[in-house]
Design a protein around this nucleic acid. Structure first.
Length: 427
RNA sequence: AGAGGUGUGGCAGAGUGGUCGAAUGCAUCGGUCUUGAAAACCGACGUACUGCAAGGUACCGGGGGUUCGAAUCCCUCCACCUCUGCCA
């Protein structure tokens, strides 16, 4: 959520930044926000004044009563009647003014960082770096969904029967490969200084609002209406919300957390082409890294997180490239995002396997995540960041396709994973 | 799940519906004293919004209500504790 005082002070810059994101009617919405804020403050002054005079009168009534001046007390009580009515209507107006402003704020996305490339769609993302030669497979190379079937390691049909589309069963070496990747990613993150946590998989509405999934992406999460909980779409939500309503000390920075969780996404409206096999699922496994950083150090932290993800991909010997997302393609809450994509050689496609973002103060403002500065009364908002390290299904897809041997009869497991899988091939 | 209890400032812990934003202790910060430290003493010490300021308003688990006035009374939700029951 944008900070209202910053909007007040830097109106033009913020409008321009939102336009870079192609946020529709940016100027109009910001004008509306500012006048809504002015209205809110006016309402508050009026309400406060009315309450102040009622407080004075109540205090006097108390004094009259203490002095046993019942008649004076009684007439003073009667005199408050009008004020009480006035306060009631002012309170109503105040609530409306606050809601109006809050609603505007909830639906305004973060402002992109100055380094974010111009552009509207994923076509406009800037390729910042490419690593590794693209594997040249022969014409018999199979896409991963065929390999999976041939090797009998993931059962989509069984998932369809037991749950529905997008909820596969992993079997045998397929299951073991999942477990190996999770353990490998967690170990690597721990070595990089991240503290491992196992968070809850269900979150409440406060948490959904805190990281920005609610209210604007309500339909993307599975909602348990009986108890009003949501299934997490990513571990970012519970892990970042550990820091909701928290005041840190400056020397607590940087805070680094890692967690493995299944992730649940309804993917409403995004089903279509290119979603075969493991490319898009309703439930998938992901290891997520989260940092809480000092505002002066958050871009340093972002680079560190990106480098960490790169090292994972390099150890897995997967060719990858790094995109700087353009203004129009960035997530709602992000100020700057790198996407990392691996090349899936049989599909001949780049698959997004990680998204590493700096949210600056956008989430922190919703979370009320601040830190104390020595000898300073005000408590600034911290910066929050997160990144996938990594999302499993597309990694598996690329590993299967790129490492298939002898017309897809067996798959070579990268050396770094072998201590975890305890096998060196799937056949 | 049932019965009972509790929820107050960083922590502990008072608070007959009326000058309570809230005693007191500890912790913290500043000062006196000391070669230095401890002790002792003096002082400061919540947050948010609003205002140039003085000030005003709100906050005693969350929400709602009664009242001229609520930390205090009522309703509801949540969390924790004890006992009983059930269950990985």
């Amino acid at each position: 959520m944008l900070e209202i005082h910053k909007v007040r002070e830097n109106k033009e810059e913020i409008i321009q930044a939102l336009q870079k994101r192609h946020f529709p009617k940016a100027a109009q919405v910001i004008e509306e926000l500012i006048s809504s804020d002015e209205n809110r403050r006016q309402q508050q002054v009026r309400l406060d004044e009315a309450k102040a005079s009622l407080n004075v009168q109540s205090k006097n009534i108390g004094i009259f009563k203490a002095q046993k001046k019942e008649a004076e007390a009684q007439s003073a009580i009667e005199a408050t009647a009008d004020l009480k009515v006035k306060i009631k209507t002012l309170e109503q107006q105040m609530r409306e003014a606050e809601d109006a402003m809050q609603n505007l704020l909830y639906f305004i996305p973060n402002t992109p960082h100055a380094q974010v490339p111009q552009g509207r769609t994923s076509e406009d993302n800037e390729i910042a770096y490419t690593h590794g030669a693209l594997p040249q497979l022969n014409d018999h190379a199979l896409p991963h969904w065929e390999l999976i079937q041939k090797l009998d390691i993931i059962d989509f049909e069984m998932g369809n029967k037991v749950t529905g589309a997008g909820f596969p069963f992993y079997k045998g070496k397929g299951a073991r490969l999942q477990r190996a990747l999770i353990a490998f990613f967690l170990d690597q993150a721990q070595e990089a200084g991240y503290l491992e946590v196992i968070p809850p998989l269900l979150i409440n509405t406060d948490s959904g609002i805190g990281t920005g999934q609610l209210p604007d992406k309500e339909g993307q999460m599975y909602h348990m209406t009986v108890d009003n909980y949501y299934l997490i779409p990513t571990a970012e939500v519970p892990i970042t919300n550990m820091f909701r309503d928290v005041i840190l000390n400056e020397d607590d920075f940087p805070i680094k957390r890692v967690g493995y969780t299944p992730c649940f996404r309804r993917e409403a409206g995004s089903w279509g082409a290119d979603v075969r096999g493991l490319n898009r699922l309703h439930q998938f496994d992901k290891v997520e890294i989260v940092q809480i950083a000092h505002p002066d150090k958050s871009y340093e932290a972002l680079e560190g997180m990106k480098a960490h993800v790169q090292s994972l991909l390099e150890k897995l010997e997967l060719p990858y490239r790094i995109l700087k997302l353009c203004g129009g393609d960035m997530g709602f809450t992000s100020a700057f995002t790198y996407d990392l994509e691996v090349f899936s050689a049989a599909q001949k496609r780049w698959l997004e396997v990680s998204s590493v973002s700096n949210f600056e103060t956008y989430q922190a403002n919703r979370l009320k995540l601040r830190y104390k500065v020595k000898d300073q009364k005000q408590k600034p908002l911290a910066h929050t960041l997160n990144g996938s390290a990594l999302a499993l299904p597309r990694i598996v897809a690329a590993l299967l396709e790129n490492n298939q041997q002898d017309n897809g009869t067996w798959i070579k497991i990268p050396e770094v994973l072998q201590p975890y899988t305890r096998f060196d091939k799937i056949d």
